[in-house]
Each structure stands twice: as C-alpha cells, then as structure tokens.
Amino acid sequence: MINIGIDVGKFKHCATVLDDSTGEVLIKPFFLTNDRKGFDLLYSKTKQFIRRKHSVGMEDTGHYMINLTNYLLDKKFTVKYINPRATCLRRKELGVSAKNDRKDALLIAEMLSEKRFWRSISPRTIENSKFRDITRLYHQLQEQQNQDMNRLQRALDIVFPEVNLLSWTRYSKAYMKFLSTYPSASSLAFEDIRNLRKALKTEGKGRQCKVTAEEIRELTKHSVGEDNSSIELEVTSIIAVIITREEQLRILEKKIEEFSHKLNSPIISIPGISHISGMTILAEIGDINHFQNTGNLISFAGMDPLVYQSGKYDAAHMPISKHGSRYMRKALYQAVFTVCKYSPTFHAYYTKKRNQGKSHRCAQGHCARKLLRVIYKLLSTNSLYNQNHIH
C-alpha cells in the first residue's frame, strides 16, 4: 500500500510518499504551490503510483483542500480525508512536540494505514458538499435576517415605539414600505395625510393594509419617540438589507426544493419534515453508509449525552455533546417540532417524556434522537416512512 500524505495550507502544501508495508519514505517531503503549477508538480512525482494500491490523505480543513481534491479525483487518485482532531491527538500520543509541515505530511501518510482515522472521498461526496454549502448558506442568511430584524425593532423602540401597537403584520410589504418612507414618529409630524394614505398602499392583488393613515397620525401626536436622524438612517438601511436578503432566501429556498424533488429522498416522506430541514439534515449526513449503526449517526450529530464518571461519582444529568455540525442539530430541532405535531407516534413519545418529568427541551432531544434512528433506517434501506412500523 502506497500512502501519499499531504499537509494542506493556504498558499502551499507539503507532500510525501510512504510505503506502508516497509515504512520506507519513497519520496521525501516536498512543497508545492496551491495552483495549477503546483498540482502538476505533485502529479508528475506521484503518477507512478496510480496503478498500484494507494491512498492520498489530507486533513479535512474546511476549504483549502477542495481544489486539490477535485484535481486528484480527475486524475483517478484515491482520496481520503482525516479529521484534524485525530492528527492532533495522534501527535500527542506519539509524544511529538514539534509541529511543522514536513512532519505533519509524514504523520498523515502514516495515519492512512489505520481505517479508523480516515473517510473516503468520491465525486459524489464532493457533489454532496456543494449542496451542503447551499443549505448552510441558507441558514447563515436566515440567522443574519433574524439578527437584523431584532436590530430594526430596537431602533424602532427608540424613534417610534408605538408603531407596533397598530394591527398590521410585522415585516409585511406594507409595514416595510411605510417604515422605509417614514422611519420615525418625528418624520410623520407634519406630513400631509394624503401622503400617508399613499405610503400605506401596496402594489399587487394581495390584501391591502388594514392600518389607516388617521390611526398613525393619532399615534404620532402622543409619541414618546426620540427625534434622532442617525437612528432614522439606521432604520431605512436595515429595512433595505432585510428586503434584499429576503429575495436571496427565496432564491435559495427554490433551489433547495428543486434539488429535493430531484433527489426524492425517503426523508421527505416523514410527516412534518419540510424540504429545507430535510435537505439540510441529508446534506450534513452525506453518505449514510459511512455510519455503521444509529449510535454512530447520533454521535455524529452531537446528540449523544455526555458521560462523566470519576471514582464513585457518576453524573446523572449531563447535556448533549454538541459535537459535529450545528446546522444539523438546528435542523433536527426545527424538524422534530413539526414531526411531533403530525406524527401520532412521535407526539405520544414526546408526551411520555414530559410525563416522566422531562423539560420541553429535554423531551425534544429524546424525540430528535428517535427521529435520527428513523432517518437511519429509511436511508439505509431506501424505504418510505410507515407509521405502523414506528415504535
């Protein structure tokens, strides 16, 4: 077995070749630049091993190894990723205090000999990672949207605190349009009533705003809002950002839904799971065959409870480990909320945990683990959800 270890960097990589059977270093560590010239240098030195049983290993560093991985897969190399935490622990285990690129490349090459350290990468894995980037981008934008909405309400509490007493829907078209024109109570003080009526009208055939210009005028007479031009500018700026981001989110939602229909995964057959949450979970899982059992999947999601024992002490109540992807855990908690609503089995399980004295969040955690066990079964057998088979 020929092990090709690569220590990945932002501007340059370090590679070495090791004969697994003899431990001989066939090619001493050498550096290559992170561009076409460097990749071609790596290929020219290692192409002699393609027809032999080999593995190219590198740390899963997030994004620095993506272009190199695509290049190697195109050249028909066998590529494997190693968790950076594993290399760090292995270095400590061997008592190696010094850390440099050459030694790390050799360490990675040596770790390829043990299956527990690596996972195989294929073109399908890369394709899945591209979709995972889309779902993660969606959640990142959604988080930013929530933060900006909170910022908007904070600003309104200062310059127009009475505006939310009116009977309109927050962040609706009428709400956002009116506040972008009149971001504070002071900006309404001497405005013509006809202009206020015009600002409340929305284009299209949808329902018109129920709030009247007279109601707004009456509120502004007694408003305690501060006359602050800086915060007025903040309100209009935040509204513009929220509206733009809302359009971006709609584009991503449509893209994710299109992919969901194309993939037609069994995970969508679970009642209560939307295309967004279902595809987020699926993108984070990747290939279900990488997990030997449901316990591995639960641990991968960071939903396994921590264990703390020391001597006679055994902690009875410990939080979940929260290892792995936070996007997956977020999608699981969002999904399990609606699954418990639409699935009688999950609703009964949630009620059982609550009756046992568990808190709402703790009961949701139990349901999330149950949901992961169901997902594992559906994906591994490629079967649809059947209420009668869930216990």
Rank of each mutant, 00 (worst) to 15 (best):
S277A: 14
N355K: 05
V163M: 09
E258V: 06
V79H: 07
L42Q: 10
A335F: 03
E143L: 07
K75M: 15
N100M: 09
D192M: 01
P271N: 12
E246T: 15
H261F: 10
R197G: 00
K370Q: 13
H366I: 04
E93F: 15
Q208F: 03
Q334W: 04
R354K: 11
D148W: 02
G272V: 04
G286L: 06
P29R: 11
L379H: 14
A15Y: 07
E114Y: 04
V79M: 08
T33G: 10
S55Y: 09
L378I: 12
A240H: 02
K255Q: 15
R373S: 15
A301P: 15
V211Q: 05
I390W: 01
K330Y: 09
G225C: 09
A86W: 02
Q145L: 11
R52G: 05
Y138P: 05
G365V: 08
K255W: 07
V235M: 01
R132L: 11
T69Y: 05
R361L: 08
D40V: 09
S120P: 00
I82C: 07
Y43M: 04
G95S: 06
T244I: 05
G38A: 14
Y182W: 00
E215W: 01
S120E: 07
D40G: 05
F30W: 13
C209K: 03
E162G: 12
K115S: 13
S97Q: 11
G286W: 01
D287L: 05
R36V: 06
A86C: 02
H323M: 11
D74L: 11
S343V: 09
F31Y: 09
I158P: 03
R151K: 11
K75W: 01
T294Q: 10
N100L: 03
T87G: 06
T87D: 05
P271D: 14
L282K: 05
R361I: 14
I251N: 07
T345D: 07
F346P: 08
R124A: 05
A368M: 07
S223T: 14
A98K: 04
H139W: 15
T244D: 07
S277M: 09
T22G: 06
F190H: 10
K37W: 01
I231H: 04
I126C: 08
Q48N: 12
W118M: 02
Q364P: 05
L72F: 00
S21I: 04
R90M: 12
N164G: 02
N3G: 13
K377S: 11
K80A: 08
K92H: 14
T135F: 03
S343Y: 01
I251A: 09
T181C: 05
Y81Q: 11
Y313C: 11
M111H: 07
E110Y: 03
G278N: 12
L372F: 10
T22Q: 10
T338Q: 10
Y349L: 00
S343R: 10
H261Q: 10
A283C: 09
P123Y: 06
R329K: 10
V235G: 02
E258N: 15
A315T: 02
P29S: 11
I251D: 15
V211E: 08
I375V: 14
N388K: 02
R245L: 13
T181W: 00
P183C: 03
D227L: 01
I375H: 05
D20T: 15
N164Q: 08
D7G: 06
P319Q: 11
F31R: 10
Y308Q: 12
T69V: 12
T46S: 06
Y349S: 01
G5V: 12
D74S: 13
